[in-house]
Write a protein that binds this DNA or RNA. Structure first.
Lengths: 319, 319
DNA sequence: TCTTTTTAAGAAAACGTTTGAAATGTTTTT
DNA sequence: AAAAACATTTCAAACGTTTTCTTAAAAAGA
């Protein structure tokens, strides 16, 4: 029996008779034949693999994203490989070089802060790999992106807080250098406006995300003359730092400053003092959408490719 | 210039002159040449990849293991692919089939509870893949394994508790069907003995790991006539369930029952009520050791292969 | 200068699979 | 009965790299 016959039989080619197909298949089982994927990938110049690049696996947000991606990938019989950049732009470039030589079919990436990978990512696209950003954007919006709709999230959070009686709602923002920080600050402002609350920049504080800096920001907030009663926080883990800080330094304030943060994490279930509520950014769904974009592009002609920019609605989850 | 010359030049073969090597390398950069790994893997019948199979990425313990593996793998220029079995034996078998066809060079696996994969793993070894178990063992000890030394951990925990004045130390054990549960129960007994504390089976309770069952076990413990003042818990996440249960149902007992669990997690940092201490099983080190075993075996002749069984010492981490 | 040795580069085969074309065998049509 | 159509199988080339073997050129020795 010729190799080509076997190949065609196993792949259900219709130029092979039913009888042969069955004979081949049963022999394959009997002889424990397992196709050599490396040879197949090589032949097809496809790896049946999409790569996920994230900052850190200890961040449960990204784990949920990955689970979403895996769900779609396994439906499509695709493999997923995961790399951590640790938010190190150099490491990120290394990772992408590696992905290029692997000829992965798609890359889903949450770029490192201060990413230097734009050119590499462009090159990846030139080579036919579908690149999809998640959560964090890059200048010029030239890549597919799936992220949560911060404006929707902020609006739901602020509206909820107003209903609870809050009128003085602060914002702890991320580093001004980050796209996401600006975006969420803007969302915060817009949400205040929609709720007829005046914007007051004295109760918007920035943190570089270190616990120390966050502590100082909170201290400053607590020293403003009209102390805020609630705060919208840039990111879930940051909310936890805020709570930790309050617990240590201002335990009396703990109940007087209600916290809502972007992002809801499974680990919240174990916390005593947790944010009042969280903006659930649907990480699993982000992963699924990103994976779907990848597969759509992988299966399409390169000519018809268009850039997709998806912002997913959030929900407000009481903790 | 012949492909063979290029190949040799890029791989630093010494039958190529220095001049040509440099010429090739500079042209490679200029033309953006990136070797096709798929072709290479195919040619070598090696994938330069080790696979990690774990139950769940949301368990930070395993994330730390993975980070350890990645550390060693990247030193060796190896790729790591991760799969989640979700403790589903069927899914696990599927995953391993996939790994077989990928011809991965090594598999590091924390087998699913009730794993049905022994035969598949044997087959994997026959095919030349190095199989290393982590944390969870399989009957007959035919595979390499890296795990923590429960006896060492339990001894340190019980000794510490005794020094704090505890004489009545309970044990919340995992399902009796699990190898690990038996192991740790045995370690608990041995540690009591070493500390001259009598073993009392009325204060050893089993849980199937569901929150409900754990609650019942704790309730039963609290109802024993000589109520324990401390408890050694099977696993980190289980400690959290215990604490959550006490908080809800017996808040007064929260400070009266000191808890030490197997496993220390990064998320503990955010908790108010946390176990008194944790047995740090050094997940990162487990990953590193497992990866080292893999590479040692990958680079060795199959003839000289021996089974390695490593039990790593623990430390006791105050929380 | 001629032979021998050394060095460097090229040629060809191989890895396992898939693919389209060619060959074989069978059936239908004329 | 010959030709045409069809069904099924096999052949041969290809994918990009590495490796072994060969060849060409240069250097060394006589």
């Amino acid at each position: 029996m010729a190799p080509s016959t076997v190949s065609k039989a196993l792949n259900g080619h219709n130029s092979i008779s039913q009888i042969t197909k069955e004979r081949v298949k049963s022999l394959a089982v009997e002889w424990n034949y397992i196709p050599n994927e490396a040879a197949r990938f090589f032949k097809h110049n496809k790896s049946q693999t999409i790569a996920v690049v994230i900052p850190d696996l200890l961040d449960q947000f990204y784990v949920l994203v990955i689970k979403g991606i895996e769900k779609i990938a396994s439906k499509n019989n695709y493999n997923v490989i995961i790399s951590e950049s640790n938010d190190d732009p150099g490491k990120e470039v290394e990772i992408i070089d590696n992905l290029i030589s692997k000829r992965v079919d798609g890359v889903i990436i949450s770029v490192a802060r201060n990413s230097k990978s734009v050119e590499k990512l462009k090159r990846l696209e030139q080579l036919g790999t579908c690149v999809t950003l998640i959560c964090r954007s890059l200048p010029n919006n030239i890549f597919n992106i799936v992220a949560s709709d911060s404006e929707d999230g902020a609006l739901k959070a602020i509206t909820f807080l107003k209903k609870r009686g809050h009128r003085r709602i602060a914002h702890l923002m991320g580093p001004k250098g980050f796209q996401a920080s600006k975006q969420r600050l803007h969302a915060y402002k817009k949400a205040l406006l929609a709720n007829n609350i005046a914007y007051d920049e004295t109760i918007v504080k920035e943190t570089n995300l270190s616990a120390k800096d966050t502590g100082e920001a909170i201290t400053a907030l607590l020293k403003t003359k009209d102390v805020p009663t609630a705060i919208l926080v840039f990111k879930s883990y940051l909310s936890l730092d805020v709570i930790n800080f309050l617990k240590k330094k201002y335990p009396d304030k703990l109940k007087k400053l209600e916290i809502i943060g972007f992002g809801k994490l499974p680990l919240f279930e174990f916390l005593d003092n947790k944010p009042l509520a969280s903006i659930d950014e649907k990480p699993g769904l982000i992963g699924e959408k990103a994976a779907e974009i990848s597969f759509k592009n992988i299966n399409e002609d390169t000519e018809t490719k268009t850039v997709e920019q998806i912002r997913l609605k959030c929900t407000l989850a009481k903790n």
